[in-house]
């Protein structure tokens, strides 16, 4: 008891030196990770200053003109800003609504499959699309969505009218999110299946003895095992609320679907990269990151209060 308090009284460097002598290898193991974060995540933060400049690459960070909040004003005054923010949030809300539970459901279902060979085939087939390049996926979606494409063949089979699926603003989110689920469901379920593999068999045995049927076992045994993981995944997912990958949007949208499909990242791509307005892009990125951070902190606090589960 006396020892820790004595240690606490000592200065930080002395405690560090002492701890290092006790566990030298742990410090060496941590070094590359610390360096990685310093080099690739903390050092580049310096670049945020260009959000407050009219940055011209040839003049550099020190030679470019300071413009204060001009870039932020430019974005928020743009007639498209409200729509961009709305579309970004809506795509994310719907993605979480439909896309977040999908791999959990798949994992729960696969967990109940007893035929091992069948289970493996399903798993492999379902995570295969994850490895196909996004450009190819979008090429397939475009081809299938044509008037004479696969999706319209299916519609026609059921007596529905053929429509230009990717030319209709109201269908854009559906196509975007459904294809996202299709591509990522198998891959996303792996982490849940891995957790379930470590579930205590005694719990299931006890549940069976208590007379629980299959469905009740899923609800009362399997699901609680997953809760900590689900909460963690959810909190991290909330940190992506203002992000929608620009690549897939740009590959799929047309001016006809800007109404629902144009998001912050695609706007940043058009203005920031194509027109090389790096400052504007950085300003919008900074704005997004601030909101994302607030959401992560908020969700985490909420979860700690309600579920007693949290990241930190």
């Amino acid at each position: 008891m006396a020892q820790p308090s004595a240690a606490l009284k000592k200065s930080f460097p002395r405690r560090l030196a002492r701890n290092y002598r006790q566990n030298p290898y742990i410090y060496w193991m941590a070094l590359p990770v610390v360096l990685y974060y310093l080099l690739f995540h903390y050092l580049p933060m310096f670049g945020i200053v260009i959000a407050f400049q009219n940055f011209r690459p040839a003049r550099g960070v020190f030679g470019s003109q300071w413009v204060g909040m001009q870039n932020f004003q430019d974005f928020f005054r743009s007639p498209f800003a409200p729509r961009l923010i709305r579309n970004t949030i809506l795509i994310n809300v719907y993605s979480i609504l439909w896309g977040f539970p999908a791999p959990i459901l798949l994992a729960l279902m696969l967990n109940e499959v007893r035929a091992s060979a069948y289970k493996r085939v399903i798993q492999t087939v379902s995570y295969m699309p994850h490895f196909i390049s996004l450009v190819v996926i979008c090429g397939m979606i475009k081809e299938f969505s044509l008037i004479n494409g696969l999706f319209n063949d299916v519609r026609a089979f059921f007596g529905l009218e053929r429509v230009g699926i990717l030319s209709e603003a109201k269908m854009f989110r559906t196509v975007y999110i459904a294809s996202g689920i299709w591509q990522q469901i198998g891959w996303g379920s792996i982490i849940y299946l891995a957790t379930l593999a470590g579930a205590d068999p005694n719990l299931y045995e006890a549940a069976v003895i208590d007379g629980a049927n299959r469905f009740q076992r899923i609800i009362h045994v399997t699901l609680p095992v997953l809760v900590p993981l689900i909460v963690m995944q959810f909190i991290l997912r909330m940190g992506q609320m203002m992000n929608v990958g620009s690549e897939k949007i740009i590959l799929l949208y047309t001016p006809l679907t800007y109404e629902t499909g144009d998001v912050i990242s695609s706007y940043v791509y058009r203005r920031g990269l194509q027109e090389t307005k790096y400052s504007l892009g950085t300003a919008i990125g900074l704005f997004n990151s601030l909101i994302n951070m607030c959401l992560v902190v908020g969700t985490n606090a909420l979860s700690r209060k309600v579920l007693d589960e949290s990241l930190w």
Binding site: D74, S78, P79, F80, A169, T254, P255, L256, Y258, R270
Partner: peptide, 23 residues
């Protein structure tokens, strides 16, 4: 000119197609 024209073009591209399709 560029800062005005980009948004103008985006808006006009979108509207031209909407007028044609009847949206």
């Amino acid at each position: 000119h560029a800062s005005l024209w980009t948004d103008i073009k985006t808006y006009s591209d979108e509207m031209i197609l909407k007028f044609i399709t009847g949206a």
